[in-house]
Design a protein around this nucleic acid. Structure first.
Lengths: 336, 336
DNA sequence: TTGTAAGCGTTATCAG
DNA sequence: CTGATAACGCTTACAA
């Protein structure tokens, strides 16, 4: 099966390549008669459209890139599903790269996207990304949407959630449940997102006349194991703590393990709230109360925005902040 | 910044386009002097290689596709990370699609891959995929590796785990713990994977002189709720059962709930084993003993094999089966 | 070692 | 409504 070209189809149908191209793309006026002939020819020849040639000719491709740092994190997996769905609606192909926080890998991926004349990209940039990266990207003026992790550069569109409000909601809930000794576990010290979440927590404590104990605020990596370690230390050192707000659900899951090992019953002895609302949050026993950021929705929204940019939407850069909601399950106990 | 071409670089460096192309690809003999000049020109002009043009000319692209049915499933996310890593090592771009078990979506993705002259693909096909799909794929002779879900067609490479061995290990463990009344819960009746897992279970029973009770073998959907329902019925109808092997961890989690409702203590009154080793398996109380498959490794292996096929490796189709291991936690109690 | 030039398969412009 | 034809930017014989 030596591959057929537009010219072969044209010959077979007795028309020109221009006509075939127009039929394929529903452009221009083509009589129903010739359209039928062309379609028939395509069918009998088993013709496969060559998107590469079209992309070359158009100087732009129908490919977009998604850069993540950890596809293994359920939150990002969920977001990816949302984006993928949206991309498919628009007949766009999705390139995926997993930087694992490596700046060179990220750099290389973006360069590849440029080499492929990608129509745009959705980025959740690695933490150590140098400002120059964004400068260069800007100059290329290819649509780029930042997600989840905001960038100190108002030139880029951003889709994310309101971290501050999220932890405010969570902290208020814990206080309403009667807790006065609330810890904050997780996140990387240098993370801007963490700063916001921490802000929602501390400000709510202060608003309610509660003291802030720096010792009750600990960082840890985004993993179950890290959460477990951190919590084990924390709760041993500070038995007064009766509730914890976790930077992420995965951390909260680790904290649950640690508490169990300490013979503390989550939902009765200690209240726990996570952030992200990953699937696992509803599966564990007791269910994890958590701040839901609609990961899938972030993906869909970013996809929609990117598509509109690719269509030429040149409104000023937007920051779309999806409101978080508190999903209440059993991990904080139940109020009367 | 109107984009530069190879010709621009050539002009700037005072050489021909052929020379520039060779420098770019490290082909042919180029004197160090001209190579320097070319590289300098590339640098000063800010030239970006046009991979699309190259792909058109080569009639083949450096793009490969990954089709999954659910990227949201931690198992597949992990596998994706492994594949992505491997692809990057070989400078291949990864297209991702999430079929969500939709045959049309899957079909469309594969067609897109063909239109993009993809170099190959890794597929975990939707469950309802018609045989014709594979027939057509075969005729295109583009390298395609099947993962996780085997296909009734020896023409394709396959990378997956040894389901049979997995349940053998699990069943042996239960027998070694003294169980003689072992049920099998979960999976879809038509699933080939289930057939294999069931085979490991039944053959091990027979090997050990134990009878097979068809009534103790039940299907259910891949969800906690389904597992709970199935188990509730099963254990009420057959109180003699002292152990259950579950098709998946998620099912096992549901079974745990059902047992709890029946006031049966997992790990003491009833032993339970799952399959997959998802995160939750380590979180529940007691921890779920389960068969673990190295998801990331499956991704890496599939990537390596695909790459070798793209390089022209034309050995007969392979079936690479990665061995599962039994992860022992508390759900079967502890021996001596 | 390097240059010339003919494609790769599509799209768009301009005639007819 | 349809046809002829020149790009798009790179690769690769074949020449020099």
């Amino acid at each position: 099966m030596t591959s057929m070209t537009l010219a072969d189809v044209a010959a077979h149908a007795g028309v020109s390549t221009a006509t075939v191209s127009m039929v394929l793309r529903n452009r221009g006026r083509i009589s129903t008669a010739t359209r039928q002939r062309v379609l028939a020819a395509i069918d009998t020849l088993g013709y496969v459209y060559n998107q590469t040639a079209a992309n070359l000719r158009n100087r732009r491709s129908n490919q977009i890139g998604l850069l993540l740092h950890d596809i293994t994190n359920p939150f990002y997996a969920e977001m990816t599903a949302g984006l993928s769905q949206e991309m498919e609606r628009h007949d766009l192909m999705l390139f995926l790269a997993n930087s694992e926080e490596s700046v060179p890998r990220q750099q290389k991926f973006v360069e590849s996207l440029l080499q492929h004349s990608a129509g745009g990209m959705v980025l959740c940039a690695a933490r150590q990304t140098p400002p120059l990266f964004f400068e260069v990207l800007k100059r290329r003026n290819i649509p780029a949407i930042m997600v989840v992790r905001p960038v100190n550069d108002a030139c880029f569109d951003f889709v994310g959630t309101d971290n501050f409000l999220g932890t405010q909601l969570a902290t208020r809930h814990l206080i309403a449940m009667g807790h006065r000794h609330i810890a904050f576990i997780g996140g990387a010290a240098a993370s801007a997102t963490r700063a916001q979440r921490l802000g929602g927590y501390t400000s709510t404590l202060l608003e309610n006349g509660l003291a802030i104990h720096p010792d009750w605020i600990v960082c840890c990596d985004a993993g179950q194991g890290a959460g477990r370690e951190a919590a084990a230390q924390l709760f041993r050192a500070h038995p007064a703590i009766t509730a914890a707000l976790c930077y992420q659900d995965v951390v909260a899951l680790g904290v649950m393990q640690a508490l169990r090992a300490l013979n503390l019953h989550v939902g009765r002895d200690v209240a726990l709230i996570g952030f992200d609302d990953i699937i696992e949050a509803s599966l564990v026993e007791p269910g994890l109360t958590t701040v839901s950021v609609a990961a899938r929705e972030i993906g869909r929204t970013a996809g929609g925005l990117l598509f509109s940019r690719m269509q030429g939407n040149d409104e000023p850069p937007k920051r779309i902040i999806l409101p978080p909601t508190l999903v209440i399950r059993g991990s904080c106990g139940f109020s009367g």
